[in-house]
Design a protein around this nucleic acid. Sequence first.
DNA 1: CAGAGCACCTGTGGGC
DNA 2: TGCCCACAGGTGCTCT
Length: 277
Amino acid sequence: MPELPEVETVARSLRPHLIDRKIHAFERYWPKALHDVSLPAFRKAVTNQRIVDVRRRAKFVIVVLERGFVLVHLRMTGKLYPLPEIPPKRERNLISCAFVLSDGSNLIFEDQRRFGRVYWFANQEELELWSQRFGPEPLEAEFTPHWLTHSLAGSKRQVKPLLLDQEFIAGLGNIYVDESLWLAKIHPLTPAAQIPKAKVKRLHGAIQEVLEKSIRMNGTSFMNFKFLGGYEGGYTDELLVFGRQGQPCLRCKREIVKLKVAQRGTHICERCQAAPA
DNA sequence: CAGAGCACCTGTGGGC
DNA sequence: TGCCCACAGGTGCTCT
């Protein structure tokens, strides 16, 4: 689901709604909604705490409290949005949990497939330790052409699964990897170390370009992802190759084909993105 | 270590 | 129309 641009959109949209509100109560409707923390412990930790900030790391929304951090991972179908009232029981079957805020509004975590989870980190050290397992943020200064060149050269893996690996680079998912590889004219099965330096540079630029443009347009919306429960992400109409199987390549007119790479639907132009030797 | 397969869930859409 | 299967933006586990 939500990849970096969508999660960033959610975090930015929620920030003005949440900052300086206090968490008055927490309701859990799906027993597995909390990861690795009991309901009583989580309630005790968050109740009466003021929300200081809302941020993003990798594909996680981070709600910063005065003491500790609530993290939300939306996985495939999660939505996080404010709502004036918690719906009555029979109408909240999609809702995993909800935070009741001091102004009477609520922060709803809705998730049709119920893959999404809420995490609790008690302090900065815990958050930092957790954050260290992820690769660099592609829109931060640490993500340089030099870093990418060096890191790809040191890997024996196929480039698409590597870019999807959050421990290699944070925030990329199926859509933006396909988009970036098409822009850089790299076949998804290419062994990372085999990619020529010039193409690595293009890949670096492509990743940043695609993510930045998508964030500007509030991300990509599919049937079950709309940020804040309602608004459409504008990037859906800008997709260059993802979901365009059967349609002509926007560069060379060859028909875009869909294949399976690392168990994921993968969209390529076989002329622009030559298969590895 | 790299990659395949499957598990977690529910809904939708295509093919027959 | 209705049924069955494949598939969906993610990740984490086991097995080879």
